Simulated scan of single mutants.
Amino acid sequence: MAAITNRSSGMGEEDTLSEAEAAKRYAIQHKVNEEDIIMEEESSITEQNLSNAYAIAQRQHINSFTIVSDPLHMKRALTMAKDLGMDAYASPTQTSAYQSIRTKLPFLLREIFFLIGYQAKTLL
């Protein structure tokens, strides 16, 4: 069974599809049966997405997960998945929206900031 879960917050003003719908279409184009796709579209942040996806997966008896995301986001996403108890594996994308140091650095700093905030929250 293939399961795609994707947060829906990744829509800019010019976007017409949620990340989840775009991922679903991509999977179908790459020969994944539509009935094997499970979408999570209620979340707006990574932690919520993973929690919701995990709940759906438990009901569907799905036991392992591959997290596909931007390489700069992978550490935080995988940390959260493991903290939820997910048997999760990383599969960073080979491409990124962040192509230059001018775009990569702010995103990396944001990810570091949010990872530290997440880890501090889990200590409380």
Rank of each mutant, 00 (worst) to 15 (best):
D87H: 14
L50M: 09
R7D: 14
Q48W: 03
S44P: 08
G85D: 06
T16P: 00
L17D: 03
A90G: 09
I116F: 13
L105W: 06
F113P: 07
A3T: 05
S100D: 13
R110T: 11
P92D: 06
T5L: 14
I4N: 08
L84N: 12
E21L: 09
R7S: 14
A120P: 01
I28W: 06
N33Y: 05
T95V: 14
Y89F: 15
N52D: 05
T79D: 15
R110M: 05
N63L: 04
S64P: 03
T103S: 15
E35R: 01
S9N: 11
S64G: 11
Y54Q: 12
P71A: 02
S100E: 04
I62N: 00
I45L: 08
A97M: 13
L84T: 04
A120R: 15
H73Y: 02
L84W: 09
D83K: 11
A27C: 07
I101A: 11
A88C: 08
S43T: 01
Y26L: 10
P92M: 04
I4F: 08
F113D: 07
I56S: 10
I45A: 04
T46N: 04
M74G: 04
P106N: 07
M86N: 08
E14Q: 13
Y118I: 02
R25G: 11
L105S: 03
I45H: 08
Q99H: 13
I62H: 09
K82C: 00
T122G: 01
N63E: 13
K24L: 09
M39V: 03
I112R: 14
R76D: 07
D15P: 01
D70S: 07
N49P: 00
I62S: 11
E111I: 01
D70M: 00
A120F: 12
M39Y: 03
A22F: 10
A81F: 00
M80V: 12
E19I: 03
A3H: 06
F113V: 05
E42P: 06
P92Q: 10
I38Q: 01
E35P: 06
I112D: 07
E14F: 15
K24E: 10
T16S: 14
A90L: 05
E21S: 10
Y26D: 00
Q94L: 11
F65E: 04
R59S: 05
R102S: 00
L105R: 03
D15I: 05
